[in-house]
Write a protein that binds this DNA or RNA. Structure first.
Lengths: 253, 253
DNA sequence: CGACAAGTTGACGCACGTCAAGGCCGGTGG
DNA sequence: CCACCGGCCTTGACGTGCGTCAACTTGTCG
């Protein structure tokens, strides 16, 4: 429970025009004006330590963030401590939209690795909607994509067996990571503990461990020093009966 | 598996200005201009029979709908027939936003009762974003609310026991129904079968039945002729450790 | 050196799933 | 009119997937 709040704020080091993410081919091109506005919209960067909490359920956040680099996750807690991880966050993902729109966060966000965030001010969201309909559309698009991922996660937790669930989750994270170029040197390594997986799948830690072992025995993944490496994405997808991500151009705000 | 496609299209019978939903106090007031645009945006009404399929996973839908009256649900199927119900739809809810934004529907929608829908054309969504930022904001808001509901459902399926899950689900549906004035004569009756509940909770039909019996024995609900009536919402919420819906003004498109 | 976080493994129990049978009811056709 | 059927709910018996408990390992950091 070392829920540190370690953060550090800094002025921008990455200008939006030279955003390291934007060249990725998953992201759609922006108009010059849009880019200029986003650049103005951006108020700075926030560096968050691994394991630190970015946003807390119940709080009102004045900010909206985009992940510039690193991994994180969204989760909810029950009063007796049960935790459900809702989704993972990686570069290009938006954080805190719910809070910005509806006032109060209904989930928390924690960093899985050192996390670098672009910070935006909630108040300017209205200006964005007023003057940049294309960006507004993009934000809705992003919200809709999150919903789509949640749908699939819900299907998984509700209807897949433990083995299928684990296979799905790892294939899912791996696929997402790949689209944003997170493959270290060929293979993708996911900075996650088995406890995280358990809390995502709705399983106990022990049973998660035994399930992952089966995946390892089948040579679909290997687990090593606090992370997971995928050996055979297609095998995982077949096992989980999962079709994969739809490959479409995404907006990046 | 009588997945009929029974629908009937008709010109509008309800003008947006006299929308029976809008007077409800959960919905925020609209500007005159917004209302005028929505009215122009609306292309007619669609009546769907109970049990009929409104939208099918994998299809490209040219339309966007708002529920005017009746109940429905969103769900996903796996290739071997396992079904996961994702959420329920009631008056004021938007249908088909994912399809309109991202091209392809990733879930299906079915009517639980006779359903009356307002129909909008996807192509005009861009115009809406260009000229009515307030409405655009509202649509994002609605998408965000859906995400919030999914978060809670995921927590439920992942981390609550069968009894808690059932209690949560019924309290959740009942609360939502109440905010849109769906209480028949005092009590709320939910037009749903136990199979639906099972497919929502990620449980088997048999175990769902036994779980509901426990709720009945505790006098929290009663089950009758193809529906569920809530006796004690607070009791259900306490049992599920659920805080309830946040009570905020919603937009209605 | 101890302390702690993360992973591993076996033993055992329970909350679920599965199978099977039957009841109730409305609809349909003889 | 009854006979039959299919949808929905109900209940018991039994099996199993997963949870819980507990002990041990390994690596890391002080």
């Amino acid at each position: 429970m070392a829920a540190q709040q370690a953060r550090s704020f800094s002025a921008r080091q990455f200008s939006c025009e030279k955003c390291p993410l934007r060249p990725l081919k998953v992201f759609r091109e922006f108009e010059k004006e849009e880019l200029a506005f986003v650049s103005k919209f951006k108020k700075g960067e926030l560096a968050v330590d691994k394991g630190a909490t970015v946003l807390v359920e119940g709080n009102h956040s004045a900010h909206l963030y985009t992940v510039l680099s690193g991994w994180g996750f969204r989760y909810k807690l029950m009063s007796d401590g049960r935790r459900q991880i809702l989704n993972y966050l990686m570069p290009g993902d938006l954080i805190g939209l719910q809070g910005s729109l509806m006032g109060e966060m209904q989930h928390s966000v924690e960093a899985l690795s050192p996390l670098l965030l672009c910070m935006f001010e909630r108040d300017q969201l209205h200006e964005l909607y007023r003057n940049y309909p294309g960006l507004a559309y993009d934000i809705t698009w992003i919200a809709s994509r999150e919903e789509q991922m949640l749908d699939e996660n819900l299907l998984s937790v509700g209807r897949r067996t433990a083995l299928e669930r684990a296979a799905y989750l790892i294939a899912f994270i791996g696929s997402r990571a790949k689209t944003v170029g997170l493959n270290g040197k060929q293979a993708i390594e996911i900075p996650i503990t088995q406890q995280h997986i358990a809390d995502t799948l709705g399983l106990s830690l022990v049973h998660t461990n035994k399930t992952l072992r089966k995946l390892m025995d089948r040579e679909l993944i290997i687990w090593r020093d606090g992370g997971c490496e995928i050996l055979d994405v297609d095998g995982l997808m077949r096992l989980a009966r999962w079709e994969g991500l739809s490959e479409v151009l995404r907006p990046l705000v």
